[in-house]
Design a protein around this nucleic acid. Sequence first.
DNA 1: AAAAGTGTATTATTGCTATGATACACTTAA
DNA 2: TTAAGTGTATCATAGCAATAATACACTTTT
Lengths: 128, 128
Amino acid sequence: MLDFKKLELNPSEPVYLQIVSFVKRQIFIGTVEQGESLPSRREMAALLKINPNTVQKAFRLLEEEGIVVTPPNAVSIIHWDEEIYAAIQKELTAGLVVDFVAQAKANELTLDMVMALLKDEWEKGDER
Amino acid sequence: MLDFKKLELNPSEPVYLQIVSFVKRQIFIGTVEQGESLPSRREMAALLKINPNTVQKAFRLLEEEGIVVTPPNAVSIIHWDEEIYAAIQKELTAGLVVDFVAQAKANELTLDMVMALLKDEWEKGDER
DNA sequence: AAAAGTGTATTATTGCTATGATACACTTAA
DNA sequence: TTAAGTGTATCATAGCAATAATACACTTTT
């Protein structure tokens, strides 16, 4: 179930994008079910202490990507098909990697170097 | 030797940052020598077809990081010590990785998944 | 019927950042 | 001495993107 109380807003990134990412991540991780309904624009705005229009902007984006469906005069609903899920998955996995590799190559790093750095950094986080 | 003709400006990222990155990358890669002098603000502006103030902004940033030294009324000179070099190196290698790992973890990917994706993406580029 | 709740469209505001224009002080070379 | 070349500081401009204010049409509930 979507729990927007867990969404901690970061002041340096646009709020509406953070909402979009949050929803996608929850779908990808598997904490959301098909047909689950979202809070109303105003409810959510109150919860996050932001302007309803900011919520609307996020929801609209999600709607354009097919992740959200909004019946007339009713609350939005989460919905996805295989294709959409694949797109989300790609964005959250391979998509990440593409940018990263591009930068690493621009700096003339080798695959081995990058793998080593990556492993280090990954495990560094685990220890703590 | 620094060759700014090789710097292709990308309209979507701030020009002054591109200049800064370019210089750092050249130092890291090893195509620049200590004491090498940079073109004057105006020269470089003419070369890149931008405003001299934009060049100035880039050079000032580099100066603040200690990568550039500017004697009074003279052209700027490239200079670095061990500490600075280490910082550049870090930014261009480990620094990259830190952000990447943070995002990957936010998406609940595993190290194995990421390594596999990374290898794929890396080699995909090599084939072409 | 009225009130409160939906989403939505339009417009305004704000703030930030990149870039540009201009003028100044100084040095060097002609 | 004058002209052209340095860097630099200050201010202006422009553009964009995020957010906010407001009003509207429609349902549902009381």
